[in-house]
Design a protein around this nucleic acid. Structure first.
Length: 286
DNA sequence: CCCCTATCCTGAGGGC
DNA sequence: TGCCCTCAGGATAGGG
C-alpha cells in the first residue's frame, strides 16, 4: 500500500506513542508466519523497552534496548495502529505488541504481502545496505552514483525507479509522477538518458515525494496513516490513476500502459520517447 | 550477470 | 443476489 511518504507519515504518527514503552506481551496470528521459530522468536521482546523507530525507503524498524530490532514491510495492504487493548480487533490483525500502559501496536494486513521480522542490529544494517539512497535523505554526492547505475541499465526508466536497490522508497504512484514532472517517457531505457535529464528526474522524485509527505500520503485504495485517517495527496497527483483525464500542461488525455505487469500513467505529448523524437534514426540523448 | 514472469493473498468493483 | 473476471501503493525466487 505504501511508498516512502506513506511509511514516513506512519512512522511519525506512532513513534511518540511507542518510545520508552515497555513491551508486556506479544500476540501473533500463526497464519501470518511460515515457521514456528519466527513466532517463538518474538517472545524475546517481552520485557524489553522500545528505544526508537527508523525508516529507509519502504523499510520501517523498531529498535529496542539490547540487540533486538523489528523490521517491518507493509507490502500492499499493511497497516500499523496504536490502540487501546480493549478496542475491538479488526479482521486480518496478525500481530499485537502490548505495552504496560494498556495500549498495543497492531499490524493489520489483509493480503499478507507484508513482513514482520525480529532481527539483530547487524541483520537490520545489512537489510538497509541492500537499499539505494532515499530521496528524503540523499545528498547531492549520491546523484553521481545513482545516475551512473541508471545509465548502465537496459531496463525501462519506470522499472529502474521501482528498483529499491537503486533508489529506496519510490513505488508505483511516485514513479509515474516523477517521470511526468521530469517529462520523461516511461519506456525510455536508462542507458538512453542524459545526465542532465536524470538529474531532473531525481529532483522530480524528491519533489513529488516531499509534496506527498506534506499531505500525509496518497490514499488510493486502502492506505491510512497511524491514526487510521486517509492522506490528502491524491488530489495533488498529476497522472497516476488519471486515465483519459486532461494533462494539466497540454490537455492531452492521460494514457495508461502496463510495464512488467504494473500500471504506468503518462502524458504522451509531454513525455515523448527518444524514438518518436528522432525520425532520422540518430540517437541523440534526450 | 541482467531482466522478466509468475507468485504470494484478500477484497472491491464491474459485467452479466 | 451471485458468479466470474480484473485489478490493486510490493518483493522476490527462478528461468530464459
Amino acid at each position: 500500500m505504501p511508498e516512502g511518504p506513506e511509511i514516513e507519515t506512519i512512522r511519525r504518527d506512532i513513534e511518540p506513542l511507542l518510545v520508552s514503552q515497555v513491551i508486556s506481551k506479544i500476540w501473533v496470528n500463526p497464519v501470518f508466519f511460515k515457521t514456528k521459530a519466527q513466532i517463538t522468536a518474538f517472545k524475546k521482546l517481552e520485557g524489553k523497552t522500545i528505544h526508537s523507530l527508523g525508516r529507509h525507503g519502504k523499510l520501517l524498524w523498531i529498535d529496542t534496548a539490547y540487540d533486538q530490532s523489528v523490521l517491518i514491510r507493509l507490502g500492499m495492504t499493511g497497516r500499523l495502529h496504536v490502540q487501546e487493548k480493549k478496542q475491538i480487533l479488526e479482521k486480518h490483525t496478525h500481530i499485537r505488541i502490548e505495552f504496560e500502559n494498556q495500549k498495543e501496536l497492531r499490524f493489520i494486513d489483509p493480503r499478507r504481502f507484508g513482513s514482520f521480522i525480529l532481527s539483530t542490529h547487524n541483520n537490520k544494517n545489512s537489510e538497509i545496505a541492500r537499499l539505494g539512497p532515499d530521496p528524503f535523505s540523499w545528498k547531492e554526492s549520491d546523484f553521481k552514483n545513482i545516475i551512473g547505475r541508471i545509465q548502465k541499465s537496459n531496463r525501462s526508466i519506470k522499472n529502474i525507479l521501482l528498483d529499491q536497490s537503486i533508489i529506496a522508497g519510490v513505488g508505483n504512484i511516485y514513479a509515474s509522477e516523477a517521470l511526468f514532472v521530469a517529462k520523461i517517457f516511461p519506456e525510455q531505457k536508462g542507458c538512453e538518458l542524459s545526465t542532465k535529464k536524470l538529474t531532473q528526474l531525481l529532483m522530480a522524485s524528491q519533489k513529488v515525494m516531499n509534496t506527498a509527505l506534506q499531505h500525509r500520503g496518497t490514499s488510493f485504495m486502502s492506505y491510512v496513516d497511524g491514526w487510521g485517517e486517509r492522506g490528502d495527496n491524491f488530489s495533488h497527483l498529476f497522472v497516476f490513476a488519471k486515465t483519459n483525464q486532461p494533462c494539466i500542461n497540454c490537455q492531452t488525455l492521460i494514457s495508461k500502459i502496463t510495464q512488467s505487469g504494473r500500471s504506468t500513467f503518462y502524458c504522451k505529448r509531454c513525455q515523448q520517447s527518444l524514438v518518436n523524437r528522432t525520425r532520422n534514426g540518430t540517437s541523440d540523448m534526450i
